[in-house]
C-alpha cells in the first residue's frame, strides 16, 4: 500500500491526512496486528487488555511498568538459569547402575549419535535463545533503570521480539516430565537440584512476561527516549 490514497469520506482518514497533525494523531492509533483494523487508543485500567473489536486479538495491555520489579525478576531468572545448568537435572538408577544428566546433556546425546543438526537446533531452543532473551531484556531494562540507554537498544528489542516463538524452555520442562513418566515403571528416578531450579526459572520467565510484554517494553524504551529529547537532555 505504498503511497496509497485513502478516500475522503471517513473522519479518521481526514484527520490523518491533515498534514502536520499526522504525528500526534498517529501516536494515538493502534492497528490490530492480526486484522489491521485501526483503533483509537483508550485509557484502560491497570491489568486490563484492549482487544480488537473485529477479531478480538489483544491490542495492548496496561501493565504496571515497574522497571524495578522487571529487573529483579530478570536478574533472578538469570541466576536460576546459571543454577539450572550447574547441577544434575535428572538421575535414574536401575539395579545398582545409575546415570545422571544435566540440561545440556540432551543436546550432547543428540550430537553424539549423529543427529548433530537436531542437536544444534535444540541447543538454540533450550539454552541459547532463552538466554539471549533474558540477557537482552536486562540489557534494555538495567540502563533504563539508571536513566541511560546503551547503543543498539532497538536491535536488541527487535531480537527479543523475533526470538519469542523460538524459546522453548517450558516445552523442555514438560518433555522431561513425559520422559520421567515413561521411565517410572522401569527405573528409580531422582529429580536433581537443576530440575527444581529449571521449574522455578520457567515460573520466573512467565512472571517476567506477565509483567512486561513486548509492547510495554517498547513503551518503556520510547518513554525514555522522550526524556532524552527534552531540552534538559544531558543524557544523550
Amino acid at each position: 500500500m505504498l503511497g496509497a490514497r485513502p478516500s475522503s469520506d471517513d473522519s479518521m482518514t481526514r484527520r490523518v491526512n491533515d498534514g502536520d497533525l499526522v504525528e500526534s494523531v498517529l501516536s494515538n492509533l493502534v492497528a490490530c496486528h492480526e486484522c489491521d483494523l485501526l483503533h483509537e487508543k483508550v485509557a484502560i485500567e491497570i491489568g486490563a487488555e484492549a482487544r480488537c473489536m473485529r477479531c478480538n486479538a489483544g491490542l495492548y495491555t496496561n501493565q504496571q511498568n515497574s522497571i524495578d520489579r522487571a529487573v529483579a525478576v530478570g536478574l533472578a531468572a538469570l541466576i536460576m538459569f546459571v543454577v539450572a545448568n550447574s547441577f544434575p537435572f535428572l538421575q535414574i538408577s536401575v539395579s545398582g547402575n545409575s546415570q545422571s544428566m544435566s540440561i545440556i546433556s540432551a543436546v550432547f546425546a543428540l550430537s553424539s549419535e549423529g543427529q548433530w543438526l537436531l542437536a544444534v537446533v535444540c541447543f538454540g531452543f533450550i539454552l541459547l535463545f532463552p538466554l539471549l532473551r533474558m540477557v537482552g531484556l536486562l540489557y534494555i531494562l538495567l540502563p533504563l533503570r539508571l536513566h541511560r540507554r546503551l547503543p543498539g537498544t532497538e536491535l536488541v528489542f527487535r531480537g527479543i521480539v523475533f526470538l519469542s516463538p523460538w524459546s522453548m524452555m517450558e516445552i523442555y520442562l514438560f518433555g522431561a516430565i513425559v520422559a520421567l513418566v515413561k521411565l517410572a515403571a522401569m527405573a528409580n528416578i531422582e529429580l536433581g537440584h537443576s530440575f527444581w531450579a529449571f521449574a522455578l526459572l520457567n515460573v520466573l520467565a512467565a512472571v517476567s512476561l506477565q509483567m512486561i510484554d513486548n509492547h510495554s517494553l517498547w513503551e518503556l524504551i520510547s518513554e525514555s527516549r522522550e526524556g532524552e529529547e527534552s531540552p534538559a537532555g544531558e543524557l544523550v
Partner: peptide
C-alpha cells in the same frame, strides 16, 4: 478502516 486503507502501516516489532 484498516491501516492499509488509510495508507498507514503498523511496525511489526514495536507497533
Amino acid at each position: 478502516r484498516t491501516a492499509a486503507e488509510c495508507g498507514l502501516v503498523a511496525c511489526p516489532a514495536c507497533g
